[in-house]
Design a protein around this nucleic acid. Structure first.
Lengths: 149, 149
DNA sequence: AATAAAGATTCACATAAAATGCATCTTAAA
DNA sequence: TTTAAGATGCATTTTATGTGAATCTTTATT
């Protein structure tokens, strides 16, 4: 059972932006910090923009910033939006061919468990993830001043 | 977010066996019913044997049957045993390189959510999944008598 | 205007985890 | 001794996911 790295990185982007609210952060900077390619991170960022979590400003001096208040961004919501699918097993899919399906109670048990999972994540917001902003900033090796790189 | 088909089929095997407690069921029969290869299903069965959920009897007239009472087999337990890993995101793995890790609260939030997921599954047992045994038997097209195929 | 720095888009490729199945071995009933 | 069953190991295929190059678009600065 895994969550895709897309979702993982999406959360890291939000944490990064939440830790640096006073400036625009570029994809390049974050890609370098996360040690992945600019193009790769771009996809995740594009998705976050589409979903209204963040805003991208093009052109010189541009960059990214949060569009919503950290306390208003639930981890559950991010996971729900970023994950490609929650069809835990075959019978969740429309083309399921499992003979048992019509009389099977497994599906509803799994659905309930999935709900419990997401609802648990709903209790945490981005604000909770960045409570210790100074600590995060030092971990990311960023200061209030834009790093030279 | 997915659960492997191995786990999915493992649960189906248990349901199948739970629905036919009066006889030994062969892998061949179940493979045919699930429309997958014998060899493939074998791996799942082997694992269930190793984990003590079922028993395999070799030789002519052999087959599989449950070793434990359905009410004693929790869905959560099966999932925990069959799934290859629950490292939801990179930072769950020992070789994680995420800079944020030391100050990050995401991991614990995800761990809590995962626990909620599994604990929810713990509330359902195999007995709950096979309450309507006659229905399942007709869906599987098995009767009390061994099918000719 | 021109240039440079940023995000956006499209395409193609790489990788690893799952899934799948073949061939062969072992066991035990008939 | 034959047949029907499970057990084991190996090889292959498939697919989701991850990855990045190249190019386009936008905008601040000079």
């Amino acid at each position: 059972m895994h969550i895709t790295q897309h979702t993982d990185y999406a959360l890291r982007v939000l944490i990064y932006l939440g830790a640096c609210p006073e400036r625009r952060v570029t994809i390049k900077e974050m890609a370098s910090s996360f040690d992945i390619s600019r193009s790769h991170l771009m996809k995740i960022v594009t998705r976050l923009v589409t979903d209204g979590f963040i805003e991208g400003v093009r052109g010189k001096g541009g960059g990214l910033r949060l569009l919503r208040a950290p306390a208003d961004i639930g981890v559950g919501e991010v996971v729900r939006r970023m994950e490609p699918g929650f069809d835990l097993v075959e019978c969740f899919r429309t083309d399921s061919s499992c003979l048992l399906s019509p009389g099977c109670r497994l599906k509803s048990a799994l659905r309930t468990a999935l709900q419990a999972f997401l609802e648990s994540l709903d209790t945490t917001t981005l604000a909770d993830l960045i409570v210790n902003q100074p600590r995060l900033r030092s971990l990311l090796n960023v200061t209030a001043i834009r790093p030279s790189a």
